[in-house]
Write a protein that binds this DNA or RNA. Structure first.
Lengths: 220, 220
DNA sequence: AGTTTGAGTGAACATATGTTCACTCACAAC
DNA sequence: GTTGTGAGTGAACATATGTTCACTCAAACT
């Protein structure tokens, strides 16, 4: 009875596959199952046996791929931040179709949150609720992102007008509101999504334009 | 052997107590134990037996007070928002000692997060990681707070300058950044706290002053 | 005084969990 | 063709979990 009524199982099974390919396939299946299962709880409430059952393997086989659920979690952090960085890459390439960089950023965010929903949900959730090591890893990654953004901003603004501290604060602000917006999008019912996006745009506009004008008027 | 090496147990045991007083005491002990235990995981990873052991009662006695852990969680939501509203009350009474309302708000936030740490931690965590019903309850409460803040802001600003939609967006922005700041304070090591507070102040100043000036310059 | 009530007990259950161990047996290397 | 490796198996374990049931026994009510 390997047939279990699980919506997310192993894989469509490629015709012929090498030993390594097979292993990679179940590894992916484990990661996907974990990502999916912890979406309505948390990594800390996820059991090894749950994911094994979902994947369609025996619990012990789990150990061939990961030492523990926490170990699995650390891999998911890496993976999720690959998704997040892909998003940042798209944000940086300012879409010429949009006049406003802020509006296009929200669109890109929305698009990526939709297509990589599980990853963004994972970051938002485990950032505050995950096992300590996972929490720390996520915070570290977010700090890195923040620093990169500060460097980007330094290139975009007049060097004299902004101190590195100011840039750092601004970068932190933007990253924080980005995470917040992602959370709101994730929590929103699909039909309310457009309204929420419009609101997010208005908010980001308020903040960024406000901060920029504030800064340009301040002497120090 | 009722003596268990648990740092948070039942209570110092009042001299003579009525039946109802006794019940209330263990009820409180259960709430406190749950609040404390789920701090480094989540409600979804909290077991009935854990809290029973911590309190020093037998697992079945738990049912005399709550139907389930989730039921307990709903009570903790109510309780935590009492703490949050106490903070808001203190924020509204703008401390005459401080010139700047923003600075004083951050101080009040800091003070309350310290004294009611478990409650704020609970809200921040379960908001995204709790059981669905708990998540929904927290979101609902935050929406209420947001609406009240919008009403406050309406009283504080020129009626013509701000549309209700704008006020709503601004209120949302302030609540969001309040939650974010609380999270940062909760996660910070004590010795870095002052620096973090200074940064939070700078950030809130940027945002609020920026938004205000932005708005006053906009015609529509 | 006698009776009722209900917080807390203790045993028992079915089930879920992490982890171990010896095993199979298809693929890869020789 | 023989051999070895290592992903996946299946049984077994000790322990943790939610929930039940019949119980105690002191405070509260009559």
């Amino acid at each position: 009875m390997p047939a279990d009524r699980s919506p997310v199982a192993l894989a469509p099974a490629a015709s012929v596959e090498s030993r390594g390919e097979r292993k990679e396939r179940t590894r992916r299946a484990i990661l996907d199952a974990a990502l999916d299962l912890c979406e309505d709880s948390s990594l800390v409430a996820l059991s090894l046996r749950q994911v094994a059952k979902r994947v369609g393997i025996v619990p012990t086989a789990f150990y061939r791929h990961f030492d523990s659920i926490e170990d699995l979690g650390m891999v998911l952090v890496e993976e999720s931040f690959v998704s997040l960085r892909e998003m940042l890459r798209d944000v940086r390439r300012s879409d010429p179709e949009y006049l406003d960089l802020i509006d296009s950023s929200i669109s890109v965010l929305h698009e990526h949150v939709r297509s990589r929903r599980a990853h963004f949900s994972f970051i938002a959730r485990e950032r505050v609720a995950g096992p300590p090591a996972v929490r720390a890893a996520i915070r570290h990654q977010l700090d890195l992102v923040e620093r990169e953004l500060a460097a980007d901003l330094a290139r975009l603004t007049a060097p004299a007008a902004w101190s590195t501290e100011d840039l750092s604060v601004l970068a932190n602000l933007i990253v924080t509101s980005m995470v917040g917006t992602a959370e709101v999008i994730l929590a929103s019912r699909p039909e309310a999504e457009q309204a929420i996006l419009e609101r997010a745009r208005a908010q980001l506009r308020m903040v960024i334009v406000g901060v920029l004008r504030w800064r340009s008027r301040t002497d120090r």
